[in-house]
Design a protein around this nucleic acid. Structure first.
Lengths: 350, 350
DNA sequence: ATGAAAGCGCTAACAA
DNA sequence: TTGTTAGCGCTTTCAT
C-alpha cells in the first residue's frame, strides 16, 4: 500500500499549519476564504483523502447507523430499508445492515458486532425468538440511541415506530363481518412478536364486538411462508363448520392460501372471503385481488431513521429526549377477495 | 460520554504493559497463558471495549464491505443482499449498503462515500444510467477490490458475477417457439444495462435460428414496473399481426401483463404465451403460473461476497488475482403460462 | 515472555 | 485568522 497523503503533506506543500488545513477542509468559518481555496486546490492536486479513522478516533463517532432486521429479503423489510437509506444518506450517514434470520442468537451476535463497530445509533426489528432485550443493554448504558421498528419489544423500552396492528386486524375482521362472514379464521406468525399478538387481539375484539364466540381452533399459527398456504387451507378444510372468512397476516401467504383454495374449487370470496396484510405487489396480481392492510414499510423506515437522527443531534447538544412510540397510519384496501355483494363494491375491481 | 476503558487501564490494573495487554487481547502466541487469563479477566471486570478506530487507524482496514445496488426493495436485489450478508457475517465483515436509485449521480456519490468510509472492498450492481465506470478509479488505483454482480459494465473490468442472460433469453424464446409461437414480443428495460442488452441478443438469436424475421416493433422498452404491464399490453393490442408470445424481463411486470391480458379477455397461453424472469413468488401465485427464468439472486450474492473475501485475503498475502467473470447457472422453469398442448406439460401445474 | 517508545492522521484547547 | 501542542487508543518494531 502506497503512502497516504495527510494534512501534513498539504500543510507543508503550501506553508500552512496542519490545523489550518484541518479547519479549511471541514469548512471552519474562521479560515480566510482565500486560504481555503489554496488548501482545497493543494488537496486536490495531491490526491488527498481524509482518513476517517483518525477523525473518528478523535471525534468519537462514526456516522454509521446499524440496522438489524429479521430478513433482508422480505418485501416489507426491504421497503423499510429503502426508506432508511434514503433519509440516512441525505443526512450523511451510512447504513450497516445485518439480518438475524429470526434467531435470537444471531441477533445477539449482530448486536455485539454493531456495538463493537461503534455505530452512532441502532435501528432494530426484532427476531421471532427475542423476548428479553438485555442484549441492548450496552447501548442503553452508553446512551447510544436504539429505535425499534415494526417488531418492538413487549416491555417498556425507549422508542419505537409501528402501526396499530390491533386496530388494523380489528378493522379487517370487522370488514369480513360486514361482508357476512360468521366464522372467521386467522392465520398468523409467532405470538412472541408484538405484531402478531396485537393482531390477534384486534381480531378477537372484532368478533366479541358483534357477539361472535371465539373459537380457539380458528387461530392458526404458521410461519406465514409461501408453503404455509397449503397447510393452512388443508387445516381449514378439516374444520366444521368450515370458516367462511380468513385473515392472513401477510400477502404472499394469503396469496398461497388463495391458490390452495382455488385448487380445491372453493370460491373466493363467495365461500371464503380472504384478507391479507402488507399491500405487496402480489395482492394486486392474484385473482381475485386481495383485500389487504396497506402497511407503510418505506415510511416506517423513513420515520424511524428521522427520529434516530433527531436523537443523535439532540444527544450532541445534551438535550434529553423522552421515550416515545410513534404509530403510523395503515389503510384497509378493500378488493375483490372480500367483496361478496355487488352493491358494496366500491373499487370496481371485481 | 463517560470515559472509555483502554488497554492502559487494564495494564495499570494488573501491572503489565499496554503492549502485553494488546497482545493478549488479540491472542498473540508469545504471551504466557496465565497472563492472558489475567488480562482477559481484568478486561471483563473493567468492561473494556476495544476501540475499533484506533485499531483501524493502525492496521488500515475496516472489515467493512460496501454494497451499492440500484434499489434495496427489489426481490432480486434483496435476495442477493441476503446472500452477501450471510457470507460476510460468517467471515467477520460488516456490510455498508447504499442504493443508487438507478441514478448515476447518486451512484457516484455512493461510491465516494464508500471510498471515504474506507471499505475494504466493494460490491456493485450498476445503475441504469451508468455507462462509464470512471467513478471506481479511486478503488482501482488503490487496489481495493471491486466486484460487479448482475449488472456489470460493458467494457473490460475486473471481476463480475452474472448469469448468462443471452442464453437464458435464447432458451426462453426457443421454448416459446417450440410451443408454436410465431410472432414473439420482448419487453425489457434500459438497454444500457448489460442484463437487458444480452437478453435482447438471445431473443434475436433464437428467432434467427429458426428463420423468423426480426420485427423491431416487437421489442418494447419499458421500466418493467408494475404499471408497465398495462402499457405493454395496450401496445401489443395495436400491433398487427398481434404477437402470440411475450417475453418479459421480470416477473412482477410479467404478472401485470398477465392481468392486463386477462382484463381484455385474451387467453394465456392459448392466444399469447407469456414468460417472465426471476422466479419471484408472484410467478407461482398468478393464474396461470408463469413460466420464468430462475435467477439465483441469493447465490449470486453469496458467490460475489465469497470472491471478494478471497481477493481480500489474497491481497493481504500479496497474491495477484486475475480478472474473472463468473457465470452462474440459470434455469428455465416451464409452467402453465406457456404450455399450449397437454402433451408437452411436464409440470402438471396447468 | 514482556516492555519502551514511536507513530497511525486527525482535532481541539489554548495561545498568539 | 493562524499556529502550537497534546492527545484520541491502538499496534508494532526493537530491545531486553
Amino acid at each position: 500500500m502506497k503512502k497516504e497523503i495527510t494534512i501534513y503533506d498539504i500543510a507543508e506543500s503550501i506553508g500552512f499549519s496542519p490545523t489550518t488545513v484541518s479547519r479549511a477542509l471541514s469548512n471552519h468559518p474562521r479560515v480566510k476564504e482565500n486560504t481555503k481555496i489554496k488548501i482545497f486546490e493543494a488537496a486536490a492536486k495531491l490526491g488527498y483523502q481524509s482518513n476517517i479513522f483518525a477523525s473518528n478516533l478523535r471525534r468519537k463517532h462514526t456516522f454509521n447507523i446499524g440496522v438489524i432486521v429479521p430478513r433482508l429479503n422480505s418485501p416489507f423489510q426491504s421497503s423499510a430499508l429503502a426508506g432508511m437509506e434514503k433519509v440516512a444518506s441525505q443526512a450523511g450517514y451510512n447504513l450497516i445492515i445485518s439480518q438475524s434470520l429470526e434467531s435470537l442468537t444471531k441477533e445477539i451476535a449482530n448486536t455485539k458486532t454493531m456495538f463493537n463497530s461503534r455505530v452512532d445509533g441502532l435501528l432494530v426489528s426484532l427476531a421471532a425468538d427475542t423476548e428479553a432485550i438485555d442484549h441492548f443493554e450496552p447501548f442503553f448504558k452508553k446512551e447510544i440511541p436504539v429505535i425499534f421498528f415494526d417488531r418492538v419489544p413487549e416491555q417498556n423500552y425507549g422508542m419505537g415506530v409501528v402501526i396499530d396492528n390491533e386496530k388494523a386486524a380489528f378493522e379487517a375482521t370487522a370488514h369480513l363481518i360486514e361482508q357476512g362472514c360468521k366464522n372467521i379464521a386467522h392465520a398468523l406468525g409467532n405470538l412472541k412478536i408484538n405484531v402478531y399478538a396485537d393482531r390477534l387481539k384486534g381480531y378477537q375484539r372484532a368478533l366479541e364486538s358483534v357477539g361472535i364466540r371465539h373459537v380457539p381452533q380458528n387461530v392458526i399459527l404458521t410461519d406465514l411462508s409461501e408453503e404455509a398456504g397449503e397447510k393452512i387451507v388443508s387445516q381449514l378444510m378439516e374444520m366444521k363448520p368450515r370458516p367462511d372468512g380468513l385473515l392472513v397476516s401477510n400477502d404472499s401467504c394469503a396469496a398461497s392460501c388463495l391458490v390452495a383454495l382455488k385448487k380445491r374449487g372453493i370460491m373466493v370470496p363467495e365461500e371464503i372471503a380472504l384478507v391479507g396484510f402488507n399491500n405487496d405487489v402480489i395482492s394486486r396480481m392474484v385473482e381475485p385481488n386481495l383485500t389487504t392492510v396497506s402497511y407503510p414499510g418505506f415510511q416506517i423506515g423513513e420515520v424511524a431513521m428521522e427520529k434516530l437522527i433527531q436523537k443523535l443531534v439532540a444527544n450532541e447538544s445534551g438535550i434529553r429526549q423522552e421515550k416515545e412510540l410513534i404509530i403510523l397510519p395503515f389503510n384497509l384496501l378493500i378488493r375483490a377477495s372480500t367483496l361478496r355483494t355487488v352493491s358494496s363494491n366500491k373499487t370496481g375491481k371485481l
